[in-house]
């Protein structure tokens, strides 16, 4: 079970804009094991999408660049690969599903064409077998009349169906890892669960892993095995799902948990919020990035950024006061 599949170490992806350097991802580390679902959680602008794009080196050019860290996959540091080599991984060993299926499919080609293309660039098969395979994929993701729908254009599908097409395309080469970047954000609530179930189902069958990027803690609670919480481009906490939800160590994670609406809460209980807003990622002060919004801040917190380290087996956190929180927890 605990076979290591992907290890990201101290990943740094910066954007060199005319206004300054944006440290969109700054020191992210995590491990993804086989057959695991890893959730990456954070607010908009916390760097979760850039983390996902960095894995396949899909950072928007010409401003963005991976400036440090390693992404070990299958014994190879894929962060350091050139264009030609990384192409062999993209869509083949590691696939992506994006947020907005309406924008992520090319409007001028049929879905059949787009799925077959995925198959044919990585597998040496002829057009007819690729077509058959594409049909089976559409069938697998639950699209009725797959034979006929191969000839349809993206605009002839509904949002949920388009996301199914995207998933079919991502699974075309049986990848080891599926990275889903907010795969249900643009969909109707009624469809969201279907799409997530479909992804998890298929991945369970093929024995692959999923990196699920979302800001929906409910989704994470239900599907993820492990969670990484990100804030301002930095990882603040990384652990098993249970520990994150029941014994959060970072004040930010704690705040997130408090801001979930619960069915079983009493009516007079108000939802708690985290005051303030996420920082701009240009010219960050040297201290803890969460310092201005933190309820537990101390004087020392503004001086240096706390190291992201393992404080309990499998539980990483970046907070100067983690020891106190750990002790509180132990005391009950």
């Amino acid at each position: 079970m605990n076979e290591k599949l992907l290890e990201v170490r101290d990943l740094k992806t910066h954007f060199f804009t005319p206004d300054g350097v944006v440290k969109a991802v700054d020191g992210v580390s995590f491990i993804l094991n086989k057959k695991e679902v890893l959730g990456i959680v954070g607010e908009t602008g916390s760097g979760k999408s850039v983390t996902a794009l960095s894995i396949l080196n899909l950072i928007p050019q010409p401003f963005g660049r991976i400036v440090g860290g390693r992404i070990m996959f299958d014994g190879v540091d894929i962060a350091g690969l050139g264009q030609k080599q990384i192409q062999k991984y993209r869509g083949n060993r590691i696939s992506m599903v994006f947020q907005d299926p309406a924008a992520s499919l090319n409007p001028v080609y049929t879905v059949g064409n787009q799925i077959m293309e995925s198959i044919m660039i990585h597998q040496k098969i002829d057009k007819r077998s690729a077509r058959k395979k594409a049909m089976r994929l559409l069938d697998m993701v639950g699209i009725p009349e797959p034979q006929r729908r191969l000839n349809s254009y993206p605009h002839q599908f509904s949002g949920g169906m388009r996301q199914r097409v995207m998933i079919a395309m991502a699974l075309a080469n049986s990848p080891s890892i599926l990275i889903a970047d907010e795969p249900t954000t643009a969909l109707d609530v009624t469809i969201q669960a279907q799409i997530l179930e479909l992804m998890v189902d298929v991945m369970n069958k093929t024995g692959s892993s999923i990196i699920l990027i979302t800001h929906d803690l409910g989704v994470v609670a239900k599907y993820a095995d492990k969670v990484m919480v990100m804030y301002g481009g930095k990882p603040v906490e990384f652990s098993d799902i249970d520990k994150i939800f029941y014994e959060p160590l970072h004040p930010y994670t704690n705040g997130l948990m408090g801001s979930i609406a619960r069915l079983d809460s009493k009516k007079k209980d108000r939802l708690t919020t985290i005051d303030g807003s996420p920082p701009s990622l240009i010219d960050l002060p040297p201290g803890c990035i969460f310092y201005p919004r933190c309820k537990y801040r101390m004087e020392g917190c503004a001086r240096s950024y706390p190291r992201f380290k393992e404080v309990k087996p499998g539980h990483h956190v970046a907070c100067h006061r983690h020891a106190e929180f750990l002790k509180e927890e132990a005391d009950g």
Binding site: Y89, M96, S104, E117, S118
Partner: peptide, 22 residues
């Protein structure tokens, strides 16, 4: 700058294919 171009890159297409086809 469209998302489907990122999709095309994410599929593993070469820059030439992405520009020329997609």
């Amino acid at each position: 700058s469209n998302d489907y171009i990122t999709t095309a890159f994410a599929k593993g297409l070469s820059p030439g294919m992405v520009i020329g086809k997609h």
